[in-house]
């Protein structure tokens, strides 16, 4: 599946919810499922300090594809991270660095990615793309 196809798939999944709370129920479930980073591995170089919730991000290369793991102390933030990683995982650095992540706005979660939101997500996307740029 291409990065674009993954985005379309997520938008379709969210299409069945017409209520905000149902949408968040789903995000929370995703947050609970996301593999977490062990406490011992939450080193400062992985930390992205948001004003409110904190995010940890780690990346590695497998062949020519990138792999990400991430975590957050807030479950909703974690759920959204889960979506971002699902889209970005197993892609080449070039695809990641140039990706237009429109699905976030399409499913109505753009507020969480605004730099003023203070949940660390905007910085996380930035850091994720930076690590891809470095790997090109």
């Amino acid at each position: 599946m291409t990065l674009e196809e993954k985005q379309i798939q997520i938008v379709e999944e969210f299409g069945i919810f017409d209520d905000w709370m149902d949408k968040y129920e789903y995000i929370i479930e995703l947050g609970k499922e996301l593999p977490i980073i062990e406490e011992a591995d939450k080193s400062d170089d992985k930390l992205i300090e948001g004003c409110q919730s904190r995010v940890w991000l780690d990346s590695s290369m497998e062949g020519d594809k990138m792999k990400f793991v991430a975590d957050s102390d807030a479950i909703i933030t974690k759920g959204i991270i889960g979506l971002l990683i699902r889209v970005m995982n197993n892609e080449t650095p070039k695809t990641i660095a140039t990706a237009d992540l429109h699905f976030i706005a399409d499913i109505g979660l753009q507020e969480h990615l605004s730099p003023t939101r203070a949940n660390g997500l905007a910085s996380m996307v930035q850091k994720l793309k930076m690590s891809a740029l470095k790997a090109i």
């Binding site: 905000w20 709370m21 968040y24 929370i28 409110q52 919730s53 102390d73 807030a74 479950i75 909703i76 933030t77 949940n119």
Partner: peptide
Amino acid sequence: HPFDIGTLLDKQGIAVRT
């Protein structure tokens, strides 16, 4: 996490600060 409660309260029309 306070942020999670704040986000869900917002979606229910309630403005608090976290």
